[in-house]
Simulated assay, not measured.
Amino acid sequence: MKKYYLILILLNGFIGAYSQDQQATKTKEVAFQAGEQITYKLKYGFFSAAEAMIKVENTPQKFNGHAALHINASAKTIGTFNLLFKTRNEYHSYIDPVTLLPYYYAENRQESKYRHSDKVTFDREKNVITADKGKFPFTGNVFDFLSCYYFARNIDVSHLQIGEKLELRYFLEDGIHSLTITYLGKEQVKCGLGTFNCLKFNPTIIPGRIFRKNSMLYLWITDDKNRIPIKAHVELVVGSLVMDLSQASGLKYPLNPVKK
């Protein structure tokens, strides 16, 4: 993945916050429903850099006769950052509403002069992923990054101990990738919609042009039935980037900010 930029990094980080590969146990009740829409703002220091929106929709489209839910995510730079590094990204995932496993994934990324699109089909009878760059065999639960995020929201995390490391697998662009995440405990965290009781995680990141060797990525997810990420903070070579929940509607369960 040569073009792995900040918005995609944070979205993938949100996904991985508590996925456990094949050992994950899904809760009985699904944490989301069609009609849910979540919006995030990204800030670089004091400057607004970008915004991202993720929504869940019913769809008449079927896969091998099976019904599906459509997850649609978009991310774009705003303000001055359009001049520095204009980004317009769209992601689509069609998932089984019961197992939450993906049938099909598509993306269209426009990041400055870079362009990339992909169409990905998951064949679970043959255990083969077919994408624009070829065919990729797999075993166990492998997701695209959108379906992985929504599956992760339904993982039973009641047994987690501080310091425990988890792993997820997802397909993106050129193969199946893994991400390791460490559980750091519980905290109260403030976002654009109030202060919430949260679970805190630390996904690993790879040092490079935008990250220092010891850069850290922290994620906070609501400690309730919604299990939605409300904030992320990642350290860069210069400064830091914060992703903050700014809007949420159509949730299956009401948000419960801490009352002061």
Results as ranks from 00 to 15, higher is better:
Ala131Trp: 07
Asp132Glu: 13
Lys133Leu: 03
Lys133Phe: 07
Lys133Gly: 01
Gly134Thr: 00
Lys135Leu: 08
Lys135Phe: 06
Lys135Thr: 11
Phe136Asp: 04
Phe136Trp: 08
Phe136Ala: 05
Phe136Cys: 04
Pro137Ser: 02
Pro137Trp: 07
Pro137Phe: 04
Phe138Glu: 06
Thr139Lys: 14
Thr139Ser: 15
Thr139Glu: 14
Thr139Val: 06
Val142Glu: 01
Phe143Met: 09
Asp144His: 04
Phe145Gln: 02
Phe145Tyr: 10
Phe145Pro: 12
Leu146Asp: 02
Ser147Asp: 12
Ser147Lys: 12
Cys148Asp: 06
Cys148Ser: 11
Tyr149Arg: 15
Tyr150Ser: 01
Phe151Met: 10
Phe151Lys: 07
Phe151Leu: 11
Ala152Val: 05
Ala152Lys: 07
Ala152Gly: 14
Ile155Pro: 10
Ile155Thr: 15
Ile155Asp: 14
Asp156Lys: 08
Ser158Gly: 06
Ser158Gln: 01
His159Arg: 15
Leu160Phe: 03
Ile162Thr: 14
Ile162Phe: 01
Gly163Cys: 08
Gly163Val: 07
Lys165Tyr: 03
Lys165Met: 12
Lys165Gln: 15
Lys165Arg: 14
Leu166Val: 05
Leu166Pro: 05
Glu167Lys: 14
Leu168Gln: 13
Leu168Ser: 13
Arg169Phe: 09
Arg169Gly: 09
Glu173Cys: 10
Glu173Gln: 12
Glu173Pro: 08
Gly175Pro: 08
Gly175Trp: 10
Ile176Lys: 04
Ile176Ser: 04
His177Thr: 12
His177Glu: 10
His177Arg: 13
Ser178Ile: 10
Leu179Cys: 13
Leu179Thr: 14
Thr180Asp: 11
Thr182Phe: 08
Tyr183Met: 07
Tyr183Leu: 09
Leu184Arg: 15
Leu184Glu: 15
Gly185Gln: 12
Lys186Phe: 00
Glu187His: 06
Gln188Glu: 06
Cys191Pro: 07
Leu193Tyr: 00
Leu193Phe: 00
Phe196Met: 06
Asn197Phe: 00
Asn197Trp: 00
Cys198Asp: 05
Cys198Gln: 06
Leu199Ile: 11
Leu199Pro: 09
